[in-house]
Design a protein around this nucleic acid. Sequence first.
DNA 1: GTCTATAATCAGATAGAC
DNA 2: GTCTATCTGATTATAGAC
Lengths: 210, 210
Amino acid sequence: MTTLAEPASARPSFKQHMLKLREETIVQTVNRLLAEKGFDAMTVDEVAAQVGIAKASLYKHFASKEDLAVAAMVRAMRQALDFIAALPSQAAPMDQLRSVVRWVLRLKLSGDMPSLPSQNSTLRASLAASSEYMDGLMALSDRLGAWIEAGQAAGDLNPALPPIAILYTVYARACDPVLEFLRMGDLYGDDDIVEWVMSTCFDGLASRPR
Amino acid sequence: MTTLAEPASARPSFKQHMLKLREETIVQTVNRLLAEKGFDAMTVDEVAAQVGIAKASLYKHFASKEDLAVAAMVRAMRQALDFIAALPSQAAPMDQLRSVVRWVLRLKLSGDMPSLPSQNSTLRASLAASSEYMDGLMALSDRLGAWIEAGQAAGDLNPALPPIAILYTVYARACDPVLEFLRMGDLYGDDDIVEWVMSTCFDGLASRPR
DNA sequence: GTCTATAATCAGATAGAC
DNA sequence: GTCTATCTGATTATAGAC
């Protein structure tokens, strides 16, 4: 909060700017480590080393390892909402959904999709306690949910599936191990992998009559 | 190995039988804990407590925590091979595949599908070092791979997908988070959940023309 | 083989000087 | 805020008696 005691000075805001920059560096590092090794395998020592500061300094910015992960998830959530906001609004709901899934797959292949263990309870609690994350999740689900229902009404999405099942299936692409599996051995390019997973996601494994 | 020194005695084999029984109890416990919380969150203390023996006794049976997990995975692999061997061999390849996926989904819902972190390197090394596990994995992949190619040849499976992509997609059902997601809130029954995931897996999210 | 007790290690978090 | 050094607790693994 700006006070009357320092109205014309640029120093405080500059300091805060540097602070934000450093915290952004930290969160980016955490994001990459979460994508690479996951929450449990990521150590705070590692984060500090890669950021290039002492562990104690890290704890001046974030109170716990869980808070680090939450910050990374909040950042990823914000990016997802930004991506969705930038989509052409006149496109068909089905195409919006396909764009979102394709974006998630590419993000994961680029090593920038933080993955959380679905079982860690302390981390789930921290995430649930983050109103920014939860609000983002709600906003995202609302938006995707609307597209899903519109897609079903338009006859593009299987109307026999509950919308929530479709929503979760879309979310699950963010931690789909098929991407990593297909990347083992360097046999296929990322473009092929993305299209195959897109195909299995929307068209399934079974043949489609033409 | 039986020796001539104890030909008519039933004692050694009885002892060995009790040993096997205890080890089976241990592996079952590990299997359940792996399904519930995963490898990292499972502690050896916990295993020992649930089996009802001291931790040191546990280490007389298995040399490390990794060995415990490998034993559970070998057991699960054996069950998968048993299930496949029991399938009616005259059924269509596509139906065989569907049966296998359905079996995996039900196993996971019943809390008996051990889940491993795909990132833990020491565990992956232990698994790769287990010839019984690797042989089982090869046998399973061969069997599923043959069905996949036959299914594609018969026009039941999408021929545009590489068989390996289909194989991995099937394997990924063993750790599909959609199952747990849909179970939250107790809104849906297991039967519905299984059919929805079966539908998304084989038919995809998009509508099918009738 | 089973137990109690303990070693050894690692990782999250903090104290206190600067 | 940043650092070095340390604390604390949890966890894997083992020693040694019975």
